[in-house]
Amino acid sequence: AEDTGVRVELAEEDDGKKPSIALKLWVEDHKKLKGKYKESGAIEFTFDLEKEIPENVAQEMVESGFFHESDAKTVGKSIRDRVALIKWRRERTVSAAL
């Protein structure tokens, strides 16, 4: 995944089955953000792997005041990259089991 300056990680163990997973997002390099970033720490949230869209969560974070609108794309991409990795690992685990 591209280093966007925004880090997204699992906030809980992934059992590979539950549709929703807790993720944690924080800024590692605020120089990579366009908007003025007020240090807010790590933001934990739940993401539905089957139904939800990363960019929508990023927009909710902007609307909640965590990020500037100009950084919605960067935040959305960071979430998308992590979600893709989680899904890839799940598929690999299933195919290995088969």
């Binding site: 590692e28 720490g41 909710e60 974070m61 005041g65 965590f66």
Partner: peptide
């Protein structure tokens, strides 16, 4: 440690806590 909580109008809960310790040392 300080933990804050923001609930978006769409209902999603965002829980804010300090950046994980290990990551701070990496920076």
């Amino acid at each position: 440690c300080a933990t804050a909580q923001v609930v978006h109008s769409a209902g999603r809960r965002f829980i804010v806590s300090p950046v994980p310790e290990a990551r701070l040392k990496e920076q």
